[in-house]
Amino acid sequence: MESFQETSGESRSDNGEGRYGDFFDSPGNGQRTREHTRRAMRAAGLGWFSVGLGAAELLAPRAVGRLIGARNDASSRKALRMLGLRELTSGILILTQKKPAPALWSRVVGDLMDLALLGTAGRRSSRPTRLLAATAAVVGVTVVDAMTALDVSRHADSDHEDGALERSVSVNKALTINRPASEVYAFWRDFTNLPSFMSHVARVDVNGAHSRWQARGPAGVELSWEAELTEDRPNELIAWKSLPDALLENQGSVQFLDAPGGRGTEIHVQIRFELPLGLTGFTLGKLFSGIPEQKLENDLRRLKQILETGTVVRSDASIHAGPHPAQASSKVSKGSKKTKTANRGALP
């Protein structure tokens, strides 16, 4: 369970960088992730350098001009301000773009522009030594910029979230249900109950430790697989895993913890899908028509509704797929699954 808790802790820090961190957990992936982080940090460093230099050129062109030995006249100051604007733009783009490579290349182009300008200034400068030092500095910066841009561009594919690294998608959610752990566990442990709250699961048949799952795919496409129970600790944990020949390999676990303050049971669910070649998290989302995290959360809410109130709660609009005005349906309901009460005995 330790690794599970680590992962769920990690998933809570939802910044762009760490967002997919918990998806790569093989040792080789860890190494690649570290390299990716180093590249990202170098790019960010250059981004901040651009912002700083740009701001200085824009706000204090006279001082910058003096420092690099440029002539102190209105046209030089104007040129420095323009350069400052360019620097600032590059910096902001590097820091904010998901794919910073083009912005990094814009720095290289900017460096070459600077070198050309310094060359022209050299002929008119009153302080050639400073100008020479500035030129040397820009040459150095150009080399660093070009190397970073090359490096980031070359690895853009593997660092990118839709790229080759993403071979599995894990989804974690936690929710508190105001019922004792024994009851929540028992309801989940009877896998035939799962379709009552899992929107993408049409049917589960149980045969000992094995179960056969049928999923609702897009446009009525049915997907099914066999799963086996891998761990079962009454009132604490249930874990399952699809059998190797499954089209969509997946494994999951649900942990039941007493919520503090007598608030019932915390359920912590983790499901991981191994993606077949060519399938990405995005297509997985499309397959289940929604974001997997959101789907799981909505599933757990329905479970909470069933266990706490006796049934899935329906509003006039929510019984329809897609937008619908909040008024009753004109169609006659046929006692469909949508209004089916979960088999939980007496209502509270």
Partner: peptide
Amino acid sequence: TVPDPKILNPR
């Protein structure tokens, strides 16, 4: 004029 409401949940 809209459809009449119906019982959707037992409660």
